[in-house]
Amino acid sequence: MVIDSHQHFWNYEPVKHEWIDDEMAVIRRDFTPEDLQKVYSENDIDGCVVVQADQTLEETNFLIDLASKNNFIKGVVGWVDFRGDNIDDVLEHYSQFDVLKGFRHVVQGEADHNFLLRDNFLKGISKLEKYDFVYDILVFPHQLGTVLEFVKKFPNIKFVIDHIAKPYIKDGFYDGWAVLMAEIAKHPNVYCKISGMVTEADYKTWTPEQLEPYLQLVLDSFGTDRIMFGSDWPVCLVAGNYTEIKETITNFIAKLSLPEQSAIMGENAIKFYNL
């Protein structure tokens, strides 16, 4: 099975989605399961994991509802406030929904560089193990030192780094990102999504060759059993179409064995998210 491990849905609202700037105007509209189903049938995708794009419980409930009505949505990554005093009750409530696999916070948007290491956040994250939830880590490269300290604290929780930690490809930033990603990858409970790269490069002039060193570092560090294909649809549409995004990955991994390719294109996501 081919599983897209990372995509989003939204009913566009200018205030809620203010992060969609003028350069990204092409995605200032609604994106629904009907839209994605067409894309998937054209690109031979069997299912997906939908990830939160808004930090509210309403968003989590919205995605669970969409999954209940569309069986190609195999898993949901929602949002809860891990800093809340009632986090145990909240996680207990959400544990009744089999399709809800884990959670994410937009840590990249936090001014506090050590957000992940604050006591109240750590206390909340520690509860994930009890309910067998996983956690998506969304950060920029300058936050990777914190990520390393963070994942060390929870060897029994499964983590996945979204969008290879968004290296500044457009600016050619590589070495600092690479050193920390390789270090983080030494922790066997941490996976990595090969997704979201085209939007860190120049939207109009990126090439697969430009992405290759970043992909190679992630492949060498995490191995073929801990990386997973994700499209980041519809955000990816600001820099390319779905087919281009998918082919960038399938062409890169074509040198690997068929079982390794199958792992990256679907089986690792099935295993990580327990789909």
Rank of each mutant, 00 (worst) to 15 (best):
M1R: 07
V2G: 02
I3Y: 11
H6M: 01
W10H: 12
P14A: 15
P14I: 15
K16P: 07
H17Y: 10
H17V: 07
W19A: 06
F31E: 01
P33Y: 05
P33C: 08
E34V: 02
E34P: 09
G47K: 01
V50D: 02
T60E: 02
F62D: 14
L63T: 04
I64A: 02
A67V: 01
N70P: 14
N71E: 14
V76H: 05
G78I: 14
V80G: 08
Y94F: 01
V99P: 10
V106D: 11
I125T: 01
L128D: 12
K130A: 09
K153E: 10
I164K: 00
A165D: 10
K170A: 12
D175P: 09
G176E: 15
A178D: 08
P188E: 15
V190E: 00
I194Q: 09
M197C: 04
A201N: 09
K204V: 13
W206Q: 14
Q216N: 13
Q216W: 05
V218K: 13
L219T: 11
T224P: 01
P234V: 11
V235I: 14
L237T: 13
N241G: 03
N241R: 02
S257A: 11
S262M: 10
A263M: 11
I264T: 05
N268C: 04
K271L: 03
N274M: 03
